[in-house]
Structure formats: structure tokens, C-alpha cells
């Protein structure tokens, strides 16, 4: 399958650094921020953004991990169930600004599931969404607050986000199905 690399390692690093600055700017500092990465690749991305903020602001922001498997709207129609991992919410999120982090924003259904899951843990002050790639084709009224790269795609294309923590290298590629 032919694939085209859209973001290389350096591009990913720059995009995440920019997102880190935008988050601090938009929230007027780091008070009350919590990062929640969506499993699997949202978690290392959330850690990297938190690490960037620690470097330039000197503040450590808590990072959690969320598995949306139990909140999906298509469980009944799946041929097999993906493994579900524990959700870890490191602090009480009531009154906090939750920054949800995911690798790819596509239909918006995962984001919907993630918001439902977060709200089950308490009522945050706000939920904001940071994604490395926005590939379009939304099926729900959802948009990202912070985007690494807007990447127009066709429905039959696949976006592959590879990260050192999970895949051994950093890159984002578009895979064509032909």
C-alpha cells in the first residue's frame, strides 16, 4: 500500500511545542490544567505536551490516560472487542480545565465517547481538545481547540500516526488503500 509521510519527527516536535504554547496562552497560565490522553497514542502525546510546558513554564501538569472502549457507540456491531485498559485520572477533575489529547480527529465519535467518560468522573470547568492531526469527515458537531496539522483526506485513506513510545519512530503518514 502506497503511503506518503506528511509529518516527520521534527514536524511533530514543532507542532507539539506550538500546541503547548497555545494551551498555556489560551488558559492564561497553567492553573487548573489536567491532560488526559486517549489511549493508545494520545497518552504519549499528552506526556510530550506536558513535558514541553514543564520546560518553558517550570510547571508539572498532571497527565491521565483514558480508555473509551466502554463508551463506544458501536460495540454491538463489532466483530471482536478491542482490549480495554484501565483509565487513570490522576486528580479530582471537578472544576479543572481538562485538555483531552488524541492523535487523529476523524468522525468525532471517539471524542464524544471521551467527553462522556470524563464527565462520569466529575464536572470539569471545561474540556478542550488537542489533536496532532485533523483529517476532517466529522459526523458529530465537534471541533478541536488545538490542531497540529490539518490534513485533508479521502474517506478511503488511512492516517497512520507512529510514535517512538508505541511504534519505535515518529512520523505521520497517509496510506492509500489502492
Amino acid at each position: 500500500m502506497p503511503q506518503k509521510v506528511i509529518l516527520a519527527e521534527e514536524d511533530i516536535r514543532r507542532a507539539l511545542t506550538r500546541i503547548a504554547h497555545e494551551i498555556v496562552e489560551r488558559n492564561h497560565g497553567c492553573d487548573g490544567l489536567v491532560f488526559i490522553g486517549m489511549r493508545t497514542r494520545g497518552v504519549p502525546l499528552a506526556r510530550r505536551i506536558a513535558e514541553a510546558i514543564r520546560e518553558f513554564e517550570g510547571v508539572e501538569i498532571p497527565v491521565g490516560a483514558l480508555d473509551i472502549g466502554l463508551y463506544r457507540d458501536d460495540i454491538s456491531s463489532m466483530a471482536w472487542h478491542p482490549p480495554i485498559r484501565p483509565t487513570i485520572i490522576p486528580i479530582d477533575i471537578r472544576g479543572k480545565s481538562v485538555i483531552l489529547v488524541d492523535d487523529v480527529l476523524f468522525t468525532g465519535r471517539s471524542t464524544r465517547a471521551a467527553m462522556d467518560a470524563i464527565i462520569d468522573f466529575g464536572r470539569p470547568l471545561s474540556i478542550q481538545l488537542a489533536v496532532l492531526v485533523d483529517r476532517g469527515h466529522r459526523e458529530l458537531p465537534i471541533r478541536a481547540d488545538y490542531v497540529g496539522k490539518n490534513m485533508p483526506t479521502a474517506m478511503d485513506e488511512d492516517v497512520a500516526v507512529r510514535l517512538k513510545e508505541t511504534d519505535g519512530r515518529d512520523e505521520v503518514a497517509i496510506i492509500r488503500s489502492d
Binding site: E60, I61, G64, A65, P83, T166
Partner: peptide, 21 residues
């Protein structure tokens, strides 16, 4: 500025290559 102690997160390494039917 407030610093919160970071809780240790387990590595998100996907195991179980075989998908039980």
C-alpha cells in the same frame, strides 16, 4: 505556581497481538 505530583502511568504498549475470536 502549583506543582502536582505526577502519578506513574503504565506504558501504553499494545499487547495481545492475537485477537481472540
Amino acid at each position: 505556581m502549583r506543582t502536582t505530583k505526577q502519578q506513574e502511568l503504565p506504558e501504553a504498549v499494545p499487547s495481545l497481538e492475537a485477537k481472540p475470536s
